[in-house]
């Protein structure tokens, strides 16, 4: 990404166990603008030490946005892309059974906890926290400003029950429900596949879900909210990308960049037929860039942009 570099480069560092006191100070500073949020250090002492016969083992490990790479390797980029403040990892052990690993990510804001949750929404919906998914061996959910992952190294019925019980306990102590990103309200509701909704700020996350450019042409940054979702209407499919910028000037620059690099053949309505026969269209509604991606028809692309524009006008 070279068009703009709003994201400071991360570094791979060796494991440096964080001092809790230091983390507490940092977390407290980070939370000054948060609503609802219980502090990370408030949460830690209340995390369960036992669940269904599993016992918390050793000391918790805490990672920050740099040391996270030592824990989860390159996937740490995902959490950094959502402004991760800290990650607490606790292992639960039971003689003769699998280890259960609890990772609680303090994302700093509920919107980003939601965002990182939407990065992977495979699995079965389950009623834990604000949204949850369960797949064999892994439970993920978000609550308040926390994204929570609980996984087992070996599956068993007892471990699955313990994972769900642990998840419910953690969700209960994670604080009141947090806000969902406001930009979601601008998504047209008709035909929306709610399981496909992604919320993001970072080009690397956008490109993971839908590759568009090898550069940050859309000027995504921590200050920019974006959502990507899939639609199905009357047998036709499309994806819709909405990006809301803090400044109109940036929105205009992004529109111009998109038209120059992606839709140079767009007509006066901002629509063009792609090489695969589908349609893409782009439009600016104030500070909201609306982009229809690979719609099965021009009509569907334009309808989505019109409806998103109307939703934005209600703001």
């Amino acid at each position: 990404m070279t068009a703009t570099q709003p994201f400071p480069p991360g570094r791979y560092r060796p494991v440096i166990p964080a001092l809790l006191a230091l983390l507490a100070g940092a977390a407290a500073m980070a939370m000054t603008e948060m609503t609802h949020a219980g502090s990370f250090t408030d949460l830690q002492p209340r995390l369960p030490t036992r669940v269904n016969g599993w016992q918390a083992a050793a000391e918790d490990r805490i990672f920050d946005d740099r040391t996270i790479f030592s824990y989860i390797n390159g996937a740490g980029e995902v959490y950094r892309a959502y402004n991760m403040q800290a990650c607490l990892s606790r292992r639960y052990v039971k003689k003769g059974d699998t280890v259960i690993i609890l990772d609680v990510f303090d994302m700093g804001a509920p919107e980003d906890a939601f965002g990182v949750f939407t990065h992977d929404t495979d699995g079965v919906r389950i009623d834990i926290g604000q949204d949850a998914r369960f797949r064999p061996g892994w439970l993920s959910f978000w609550q308040n400003r926390f994204f929570v992952s609980i996984y087992v190294e070996e599956e068993s019925a007892a471990a699955e029950q313990a994972v769900k019980a642990l998840g419910r306990q953690v969700a209960t102590i994670a604080g009141k429900p947090g806000r969902r990103p406001q930009i979601l309200e601008m998504l047209p509701t008709k035909g929306l596949d709610t399981g496909s909704i992604r919320y993001l700020h970072h080009p690397i996350v956008l490109n993971y879900h839908y590759y568009l450019f090898d550069e940050n042409i859309l000027h995504l940054s921590p200050q920019v909210d974006a959502t990507l979702a899939s639609y199905s209407r009357s047998g036709e499919q499309a994806r819709l990308l909405l990006i809301r910028y803090p400044q109109t000037q940036t929105a205009r620059k992004s529109l111009a960049g998109f038209r120059t690099h992606y839709l140079p053949d767009a007509d006066s309505a901002g629509a063009a037929r792609l090489e695969n026969g589908r349609w893409s269209a782009v439009r600016l509604a104030g500070r909201l860039l609306t982009v229809a991606l690979e719609a099965d028809s021009r009509q569907l692309a334009e309808n989505l942009l019109n409806e998103a524009g109307r939703n934005a006008a209600k703001e």
Partner: peptide, 10 residues
């Protein structure tokens, strides 16, 4: 792969 660690013995 699944989860933050992208790993399961499954």
């Amino acid at each position: 792969g699944i989860g933050p660690h992208h790993f399961s013995r499954r």
